[in-house]
């Protein structure tokens, strides 16, 4: 495992991490690096292996091959050192249904290491603080069984926050929350991140990831097909979208720089919209709209990934059949 000077600041580093369930390869030689302090969004179609990856990082599932380090130590060997510093949500929240949310958090906290010693005194305070953070401070003694989906989700996030973790590993944390809840959680994660917590979350809500994360990873059919800063990903593509009433003249003027023409919209290879505009106007081409092209996360996703594993088409042998052909596909 490569632990050079730079890798120490990676909170997560995996090398060729692979997990097979029988004949299904859920995670396929993933080399993932997540630097400390980022907000990392893990994306990918259904069944692409996100949850399995999270489970492996937490020592719940044992890799078929490959190695991983979390917070600089190899997992699962150093689980007893690593796990107390992680707050996790795996797949969906879970709680003992016959107990109240508060009792659940207290018992869960007491079950952990040092539960009866040093940490005992401030348990109540920590539980109250966690409940407060997720907006459940005023929760009554109802058993969790009677909670709504959103309340359970909040309780699950509160459980992850109990011991002020260095790393939050959250699998679909906003699942089942209403728009206000999603907004609150985004504010909460940003606040925690500003205080130094690394936040790693998986989600299907691209807008959510776009609004929250600084870096994204994309999985497809078990492979990590992309891991990049969001800014770089959404940077101008070096193309300009040009709308003009004189497309034919424009094509002649731009001389081979036009990559695509559909109706009166041209896709022009050019870095500088202002210079392009000046050139067109100087040559008598009227311009109705001009915009540097940026890739949306959705576009990136559709280009990178095939159909999800939840969609099982007949005669499906070619992965991603039916999805738009990927230019960037590796």
């Amino acid at each position: 495992m490569s632990v050079d000077g730079a890798a120490i600041t990676d909170v997560i580093a995996t090398d060729g991490l692979t997990k097979r369930f029988g004949r299904v390869t859920a995670v396929d030689s993933v080399d993932l690096r997540i630097p400390e302090g980022v907000r990392f969004g893990l994306l990918g179609p259904n069944g692409s292996g996100k949850t399995t990856l999270v489970r492996m990082l937490l020592g719940l599932v044992h890799p078929t091959s490959g190695a991983m380090e979390v917070l600089g130590r190899s997992m699962p060997r150093h689980a007893a050192w690593v796990l107390p510093q992680i707050g996790a949500l795996v797949e969906s929240p879970a709680a003992w249904g016959h107990l109240s949310g508060r009792a659940n958090l207290r018992l869960l906290d007491a079950a952990g290491p040092g539960g009866l010693g040093r940490l005992r005194r401030d348990r109540r305070a920590r539980v109250e603080q966690a409940l407060e953070r997720v907006g459940l401070a005023g929760i009554d003694r109802r058993p969790v069984r009677a909670y709504s989906l959103g309340m359970r989700q909040r309780l699950g996030i509160a459980a992850a926050l109990l011991r002020a973790p260095r790393l939050l590993l959250l699998d679909e944390p906003t699942n089942g929350l209403d728009p206000r809840g999603i907004h609150e959680m985004r504010a909460l994660f940003t606040e925690l991140n500003d205080a130094g917590t690394t936040v790693v979350l998986s989600s299907h809500l691209l807008s959510e990831v776009e609004a929250l994360c600084t870096r994204v990873g994309v999985m497809d059919a078990g492979r990590l097909v992309l891991s990049q800063d969001l800014d770089a990903l959404r940077a101008p593509t070096g193309r300009v979208l040009l709308r003009t009433p004189d497309p034919a003249t424009a094509v002649a003027v731009l001389d081979g720089r036009v990559e695509r023409r559909s109706g009166d919209v041209l896709t022009v290879r050019h870095d500088d919209p202002a210079a392009l505009n000046a050139q067109l106007v100087a040559n008598g081409v009227r311009v109705s709209a001009l915009e540097a092209q940026r890739r949306s996360l959705e576009q990136v996703m559709l280009e990178l990934t095939g159909a999800g594993a939840d969609r099982v088409d007949r005669g499906r042998g070619t992965p991603g059949a039916g999805a738009p052909a990927g230019e960037v596909r590796r």
Binding site: G59, A94, L108, P113
Partner: peptide, 9 residues
């Protein structure tokens, strides 16, 4: 709850 107990840890 098993997975949450095990990651507590």
């Amino acid at each position: 709850t098993l997975r949450y107990l095990l990651v507590r840890p």
